[in-house]
Design a protein around this nucleic acid. Structure first.
Lengths: 364, 364
DNA sequence: CCAGCCATTGAGACCGGTCTCACTTACAGA
DNA sequence: TCTGTAAGTGAGACCGGTCTCAATGGCTGG
């Protein structure tokens, strides 16, 4: 019954044709469900295929047709639940259209990202969904686009690139975040993100179409509109590793005039920041207030529950996949999934501690 | 400079050969780095390739050589940080050997899993790493094995299948967990897992080489050795969705003699169980003790910090990849990564509440 | 009864690489 | 000078599908 040979050669159309006593062309037609095939030939071929355990070779199919059935997904860090969930959305949506997902993790490294694009293009994926780790180094994406490959950007857009981008607009919700902190009385609010940027953040710096731009901009605007002071030096980017994150926290917390509130750009950052806060023995929200982006289950279970900005990550993934599929000529629902973030107020934001103005921190 | 045509035909070896004025065979040799090629031809070809923007077609390469450069990974739920992290390990290890990862999410559905195996086999992946969602339905994995494809099982093994399996041995640590609960005075300890099993759990049921078997077995053994009572009906499997998880929690908590401790099979389950506990207004560890498998950052940040069994998930992923690569004839470090789990005692285990023996729950 | 149309069929080219094989040429050793 | 060896080269088969094209045969309308 079962072949013993380890390198069991797979049966090919030619094998099936031979077994069924018809031409290769006819067997291929019967198997592939195209062209004209008589009942008789059909059943002969189907029986032979069954008997030989024929399984079409997707590689050969892709090669001849030029159409691939896989799409490439490039993310900075699958460990990040944000991407995990998005990936799930992509995967679910794309599967219905008959595609599989080739995943590459870049560790938030632009070079690795460029390499991944190359590799996936060589693998002739039908299209690419990329969560770019840099808003500035984009040559590889442009080149992919130029080669006529469908590319969809996820989360982060890039100015001046005519690439489809799926991202949610954080302007409003970020403004809300700013106001919440402002109203609570905070004047020194930190922002921590893993976004790659060559230099430290400054006022009005172009962060591309990154959500970070929206989010920082929103807070800034809230303060500006209220005529309140806003310190851009408390925006800490490049916190992609444990070390850099720790450094960012140190800069925010271990200074004469520490931040009294910190906004975390995603749940992974939040986890790290929370750890740093805990290590210093600071209490939330008495000593420091915290707001995080992404509403994952655990944010409600920590003490105190975190005030967060919820975003429909799963649907964002689906939407990215839909945009891509559309570009590939598939029929997908025309309406766009509503991708609106909203603020979930819980208990991690409070009034800043009354401090002496002498500038010497009094904790620890 | 850049082609305008959208369907920009990619340059082929033949194109390069023509441009360089050499034969296709020579161009291929120069480009592929095999066979004998003179300096002169080499530079001519390289220049021509450069100029045409030649990019090898991985599909064609795989087809002719029969060697694919992608490996398939099938998991039940990428959303689960456990798999996310493992995937990362796999991805990192495999990339060094020049492979990419094709990922399929099965939603813990055995049928979807079987379909995924088919699909990936048709795509001619070099090998498969599967975290099987069932310990009983395994025909698709056997068949893949029989076809001479390398298959490595992750997390869950299957009795009687000669498949390489990467899993950690939980026997010792599970015994520890059992003793900790026993010593704290618990007599009714629940276990919640998403493992698919046709019927409810019973004493001595064969759960295959699933970690759940180890874990439940360890607790059971601790109680047996101490001559203490152990109620197998408190083992709740099949809790793969929000609903089934809620149902399992209801069965454990909303009964005359509720469980006084609950062990969560993974972090996703723990998140769900914690939510259910919170909803009921129960307090940890006063009203109920909790132990969870997988030590993710958030488990230390909840109140109280969770007592957990830590396992080297990332390394497990790497090890699975290594086993697979070895099977594919690659050289990888011979020693096996040590995959030892250990108990991290934090504050979520305490003594069960003294209860009246009348059997009426007094919470709420 | 014959042209015309259509369903069915097989031969063979093609996709873009790899690789075998035969052939040429250069050079070393005898 | 002759032979043996090795490097360099090109022609063409091959992988496993798809698809074009021409040929065949049955059936219909005039």
């Amino acid at each position: 019954m079962t072949k013993r040979g380890q390198t069991a050669k797979e049966a090919t159309v030619a094998d099936v044709a031979r077994a069924a006593g018809v031409s290769k062309a006819q067997a291929a037609r019967a198997l592939g469900g195209y062209g004209a095939v008589s009942e008789q030939v059909l059943s002969l071929v189907v029986a032979a295929a069954e008997q030989l355990g024929y399984r079409p070779n997707q590689l050969a199919k892709s090669m001849t047709t030029g159409r691939s059935n896989s799409i490439g997904v490039i993310v900075g860090d699958i460990e990040n639940a944000h991407f995990g969930l998005a990936l799930r959305g992509i995967s679910d949506e794309v599967r219905d259209a008959g595609y599989t997902v080739v995943l590459v993790n870049t560790d938030e490294d632009p070079e690795a990202e460029a390499g991944a694009v190359q590799e996936l293009l060589q693998q002739r994926v039908a299209g690419l969904i990329v969560a770019p780790c840099s808003s500035t180094e984009t040559a590889h994406l442009e080149s992919a686009q130029e080669r006529g490959r469908a590319v969809v950007l996820f989360d982060r857009g890039i100015h001046g690139l005519a690439l489809d981008t799926v991202r949610v607009d954080f302007a409003d919700v970020a403004l809300q975040v700013g106001r919440v902190l402002l109203d609570a009385g905070h004047r020194r609010v930190g922002y921590v993100s893993s976004l790659r940027i060559p230099e430290p953040y400054e006022h009005g710096m172009d962060l591309g179409l990154s959500p970070v731009a929206d989010r920082v901009g929103g807070i800034e605007r809230a303060y500006r509109e209220a005529g309140a002071e806003w310190d851009a030096s408390l925006v800490k980017l490049n916190a992609a590793s444990d070390d850099t994150l720790a450094a960012a926290c140190a800069e925010l917390l271990d200074q004469p005039e520490p931040a009294t509130a910190v906004v975390c750009s995603d749940s992974l950052i939040a986890l790290g920041v929370l750890g740093q806060i805990k290590r210093r023995g600071l209490r939330i929200p008495d000593d420091i207030s915290v707001v995080a982006y992404d509403d994952f289950l655990w944010t409600e279970l920590v003490e105190p529950p975190l005030t967060v900005v919820a975003q429909p990550v799963y649907d964002m993934g689906r939407e990215a996949a839909r945009v891509l599929l559309r570009r590939l000529g598939h029929r997908v629902p025309a309406e766009q999934l509503p991708l609106r973030p909203h603020l979930v107020r819980r208990a991690s934001v409070g009034a800043p501690r009354a401090r002496t103005t002498t500038g010497s921190a009094d904790h620890r």
